[in-house]
Amino acid sequence: MNNRFIVKPELCTGCRSCELACSFTHAVDGVRSLTRITPIDGGFKDLWVPVTCLQCDDAACIKSCLVNALKRNPVTGAVELNHEVCVNCMACVAACPFGCAVLDTQTNLIVKCDLCGGDPACAHFCPTKALEWKPIPKAVKKTG
């Protein structure tokens, strides 16, 4: 997987377009889903940061799942959740240090970012390019 989320907080206006995109993309039977991305108020005036799942290499959610409902998609690199297997134990919700796996109380399903199958909708919808989905800059690649 070559692409990564490139986030530039200084460009984020907290407009929540990414949330809308996420929610509609993952709608179930026409019902908007809980979003997997949220711009959070960085604490300073007008500094917002869109936060979503980092698809960590050593993912705590995968490790916490005792029934193997969470697996990494070898193509997209996303950690994907199989709702048929999930037993709703909330381990992953508790284990994720960023709070990126959550229980959608409307559907009673755990939701987390799946990178929309490899082409995240949120990045397309960001009007200010604060959030982009593109190849990792070389300098970053070396260290990270």
């Binding site: 949330e19 979003t35 284990a95 960023f98 709070g99």
Partner: peptide, 19 residues
């Protein structure tokens, strides 16, 4: 048993739950 830092469980700020 799963080698996860215990601090993770005491830090459950669910960012996406704000909406």
């Amino acid at each position: 048993n799963r080698d996860i830092n215990i601090d993770y469980f005491e830090n459950v700020t669910n960012v996406t739950e704000k909406n």
